[in-house]
Write a protein that binds this DNA or RNA. Structure first.
Lengths: 129, 129
DNA sequence: TTATCGCGTAACTGATAGGTTACGCATTAT
DNA sequence: ATAATGCGTAACCTATCAGTTACGCGATAA
């Protein structure tokens, strides 16, 4: 058998990851596959909204869908994330390098950051609906 | 001196990375700091457009700006990417795991992928847009 | 001082994306 | 057969963003 590697569109992947709800869906699916309804139930947005997110994730091939009776079960497909990881790797050396020059920046700026970082944290299993 | 860790808003980071032009700007800055004009010159869009991209990157703290005479030099700040990397790390085990179950998917789907993957590749120093 | 350069901002346009409600289509349950 | 469930799609509204041109301001050059 040939060793073919699948080339995913990084563009679609980044695009899909840009939305916090979609990242949360992925985080949710790391725990195991789930039907669309249960996924939607985990978020404070409507079911159609989640449906659209799922379609986007499907097109980015970050999830796969298969039917079980009248359920549509969604499964994580982490393969496209490899491309993102390898893009990031190009920067890995940089953030090891710049620690000293970063320091001055940090002293001045970190305060503003921590303030708004709290509310933008991804919740893996969100509460209300 | 204390060893404080800066918490960046992953939300802003992902958001900034969602645009291919902005990723290309970062890729450009890996080669070294540059004034805004030169960055703009590397892209087929107007200078104000790049200026707005730079502002977004600035707000995501992915770049820093300092003035040199009448130039505004932009410098890469890769620190926020660490958060993205650590998010990705949670998926690293998954894409090592799923290789076999991925196989069936690949056989069926890879054709469509390769077709559109060609035109969506990120160019480090992009040409037209 | 005056002209020019570098660059950001304002104001506007068009496209896109996330959200909603309403609806329709299968599939299971009664 | 009929009702109910699960879920996607259509149609719509709104906010945001990428792009443009016009303008203004500070810094250098003449």
């Amino acid at each position: 058998m040939r060793n073919r590697s699948v080339t995913y569109s990084s563009e679609a992947t980044f695009q899909a990851l840009a939305d916090p709800t979609r990242r949360a869906v992925l985080d949710l699916l790391r725990r195991g596959s789930q039907p669309a309804g249960e996924i939607a139930g985990a978020f404070p947005v409507s079911r159609p909204a989640i449906s659209k997110h799922l379609r986007l994730l499907r097109r980015a091939h970050l999830v796969r869908e298969h039917r079980e009776g009248r359920h549509r079960v969604y499964q994580l497909n982490p393969a496209p994330l490899r491309a993102v990881a390898s893009w990031l790797d190009q920067y890995r050396t940089f953030w090891k390098m710049n620690l000293t020059s970063l320091k001055t920046f940090v002293e001045a700026e970190y305060v503003k950051e921590t303030k708004q970082a709290a509310k933008t944290n991804i919740k893996t299993v969100p509460g209300k609906r």
